[in-house]
Design a binder for these strands. Structure first.
Length: 574
RNA sequence: GGCCCGGUAGCUCAGCUGGAUAGAGCACCAGCCUCCGAAGCUGGGGGUCGCGCGUUCGAAUCGCGCCCGGGUCACCA
């Protein structure tokens, strides 16, 4: 629709401008004010300077060149400071319906991605504890971006990268071992105030028992639960087992199993779980280091191996291999990104929390220095999540026990609402999760349910139609000419915008546009259905009934497809 | 202090490749049972778009400076 009009304008401008003049990048958009037509074009204003004419004069010439009355444009007017306002022929809107019905679940999809391979890396939480709301936001955000890209014809691989080598995992194992020994009475727990303040420290022994808890160990109750399970299974047999052995492997396995369950409950799936350890066994870490060496990007100092990041325009150098001989996380991370492109991905998207924002430039610039295409490696950074409950904002803190897990919140509000709330805000900027609103059982108040309700209503109408023996229209026989009310045209217009919304959301990696769009469409449809005096779908006028049923189907298709993109269910009845 | 993100209605936020009187949800107020779901619908009040300067025919949108909030600046992951 819009494309046709765009061609029309380009043609008009070509005729006005000389052969050497470039056609300006004009916009064609639906004005807020319906009095300004279906579309407004700003081309005349853009050309005013170049042509040394008033925008209004130019606009008049454009209008004269447009093919008004040729079946596409009903009316064109010059307005305001030089806009060209366009009213399309009603038939153009009617022509949309068979297209939407024919496309069905593919309406809104496109092939702009041309099968290019994209990797979306997200969540990537290390298996040190249950997923928190920040992870939850990222899981939904990344998952929706992946869905959007698929809808736009990209071949998407969803990937989860985690560190399963190095110090952090050892500390985890030691933490469980410490709890295990405590539970057996073989060691004493550190004082509570010492745990609350990791800087404070604690005595080496209490009541003659050694205090074994690692200084920066994991204190969550899940650690004790795992210890408990090990004790139940093995009794005292593990007393002499090192923390870095069985304790570590069992703990990461158990925690990871929990994470996978949580992901599943969020409707988030991954194609690849990439473990840091594999990068070592495959020799990729060593390869990367050699690669960096060959480009003179490393140097030694203070017994450590450094990345010469300042040579890449970054503000400081970073350690790649500690003086202890153990690599920092940075080295495998670089190796991982280097490997992404070797595996054939053309676009790589990293979804990360704001706390990692500072790290990304190091990984990206280094990967680029190693030959990765600079524009093909993107980051989508999101800010943190807060929770508002009973009108009060609760800050999430892992250190203190004041955090809510994804499991707990989904338990309370359900996946559909959880996902909608997580994806409805743009990634930059904090997300305040309003639990009160999310738990709101009134469908009219809860935006997620309001959209689902709009979808369910189309099925309600179909059920009613079946009762009355009225046949539903199909793509091949639909005749929408009877839809002439302003609200009907408005719904059709909105339906026509869906593909643009999807494309834009995919291109900008901003799924929240879809959420807003759906809320708006539902906000048109629900009132329409409600007002069954002015426009009853199932009336005694068969032509009108047929057309309105077609409208209902089109709305249903868009709502269903949009909800699918957000990973939210589209129920046939509430 | 340097860098990143945010500052729009009482609250939570859209809008930010510049466009015509700044939008939504919630909350609040006043109405409506209109046979397809009243778990809905209609209407209303409410804003110096953090502040200032600049660019422009035109700025919430772009540039610069400042103020406020969050994040981040490890041989931690």
């Amino acid at each position: 629709m819009k494309e046709r009009l765009q061609q029309e304008f380009s043609g008009a401008l070509e005729r006005i401008l000389g052969p050497d003049d470039e056609i300006p990048a004009f916009t064609l958009e639906a004005p807020r004010n319906p009095d300004h037509g279906d579309f407004a074009c700003n081309a005349a204003m853009l050309l005013a300077r170049q042509l040394r004419q008033s925008p209004c004069e130019i606009a008049k010439r454009i209008v004269a060149e447009l093919g008004v009355g040729s079946g596409l444009i009903e009316r064109a007017e010059v307005a305001g400071p030089g806009f060209v306002n366009i009213w399309l022929c009603e038939a153009r809107w009617h022509a949309l319906l068979p297209k939407v019905l024919a496309a069905g679940p593919r309406y809104g999809h496109c092939d702009a991605g041309a099968n290019r391979r994209v990797q979306v890396e997200f969540v990537s939480a290390n298996p040190t504890g249950p997923l928190t709301l920040g992870h939850g936001r990222q899981a939904v955000l990344g998952g929706c971006i992946a869905r959007l890209l698929e809808a736009c014809g990209y071949r998407v691989t969803r990937e989860y990268y985690f560190n399963n080598a190095g110090r952090q995992m050892r500390v985890l194992g030691e933490s469980v071992r410490a709890r295990y020994l405590e539970q057996l009475g073989r060691a004493a727990p550190p004082p509570v105030d010492a745990l609350a303040d990791p800087e404070a420290g604690w005595p080496e022994s209490i009541d003659g028992l050694p205090v074994v808890f690692p200084r920066d160990g994991y204190q969550g109750s899940y650690i004790s639960e795992i210890a408990e399970a090990l004790r139940a299974e093995h009794g005292e047999a593990l007393v002499d087992e090192p923390g870095d052995g069985l304790f570590r492997t069992v703990t990461t396995e158990r925690i990871f199993a929990g994470i996978r369950r949580t992901l599943e409950s969020m409707r988030v799936s991954f194609d690849v779980y990439a473990g840091e350890a594999d990068l070592y066994t495959d020799g990729k870490v060593e390869e990367t280091l050699e690669d960096l060496r060959a480009r003179d990007l490393v140097f030694e100092a203070d017994g450590a191996i450094w990345l010469r990041a300042t040579a890449l325009g970054l503000d400081r150098d970073r350690v790649l291999v500690k003086s202890s001989g153990e690599p920092t996380y940075l080295l495998p991370d670089i190796a991982y990104h280097r490997d992404k492109f070797r595996r054939g991905f053309e676009i790589v998207i990293d979804v990360q929390g704001a706390d990692h924002g500072d790290q990304f430039p190091f990984v990206r610039e280094t990967a680029v220095a190693l030959g990765c295409p600079v524009d093909s490696i993107e980051i989508v950074m999101h800010q943190f999540v807060t929770l508002t409950r009973d009108g009060f904002q609760v800050k999430q803190s892992t250190r203190r026990a004041t955090y809510v897990t994804v499991d707990e919140l989904i338990e309370e509000v359900g996946v559909d609402v959880f996902r909608f709330f997580m994806v409805q805000r743009r990634a930059d900027g904090h997300l305040d999760f309003d639990v009160d609103l999310a738990m709101e059982a009134d469908w009219k108040k809860n935006p997620a349910m309001y959209i689902q309700y709009a979808h369910a209503r189309t099925h309600g109408i179909e059920r009613k139609a079946k009762e009355q023996g009225v046949a539903m229209p199909g793509a091949t026989n639909i005749d929408a000419a009877a839809l002439v009310l302003p609200e009907e045209i408005e719904i059709l217009k909105r339906v026509s915008e869906f593909p643009e919304v999807v494309t834009r959301a995919a291109e900008t990696r901003e799924p929240h546009h879809v959420a807003y769009y759906l809320r708006e469409l539902a906000g048109l449809w629900n009132p329409y259905v409600q007002d069954s005096v002015r426009h009853r779908v199932l009336s005694d006028d068969p032509t009108l009934t047929h057309a309105r049923l077609g409208l209902a189907l089109a709305v249903r298709i868009v709502l269903a497809n949009g909800l699918e993109l957000l990973g939210i269910s589209a129920p046939e009845q509430m």
